[in-house]
Computed example of a mutant assay.
Amino acid sequence: MSAIALALGCSYPRADEAPPACAKEDFETVVEQASGSLRDLNSENRPLFQEKLRELKNKRHWNHDEFITNAKPYVKDEKTVVYDRTTDELLSAIASMGQEGATAETPDCSRIVELRARMKMLVDTQSAKWSYMFQKLDAELAN
Rank of each mutant, 00 (worst) to 15 (best):
D77L: 08
H61L: 04
L53Q: 11
F134I: 01
S37Y: 05
H64I: 04
E28V: 09
V31Q: 05
S110T: 05
N143A: 10
S92H: 12
L141S: 03
K57C: 03
E66C: 10
S43N: 10
P73Q: 05
F27S: 02
A142L: 14
Y74H: 01
E25M: 09
E28P: 12
W62N: 06
R85Q: 14
A71K: 08
P13H: 04
V113M: 07
H64Y: 08
L56F: 03
L141W: 00
G36Y: 03
T125Y: 02
F134W: 01
S2L: 01
C109L: 12
Y74F: 07
S43A: 06
Y132F: 12
K24S: 15
Q126L: 13
M133R: 07
E55F: 05
P20F: 05
E140A: 10
G101D: 02
T69L: 12
D40T: 10
D138H: 03
I112A: 08
S35Y: 07
P47I: 03
G9Q: 00
K52R: 15
T80M: 04
E51G: 05
G98S: 14
D88P: 04
L8Q: 09
L115W: 02
L122A: 05
K76D: 12
S37C: 12
S11V: 10
A18F: 08
K120Y: 00
P47H: 02
P19F: 03
S11G: 12
V75R: 15
S37L: 12
I4M: 12
T29N: 13
E44L: 00
V113A: 09
V81W: 01
Y83F: 15
W130M: 04
W62V: 00
A18V: 03
H61D: 14
I112Q: 07
S131T: 08
S131W: 02
P20M: 03
S96E: 14
G36R: 13
E105D: 15
L122S: 14
P47C: 01
A3P: 01
L115F: 11
A23M: 09
A95P: 06
N58H: 02
D77G: 13
T80F: 00
L115C: 11
R118N: 15
E66S: 10
M119P: 01
T103N: 11
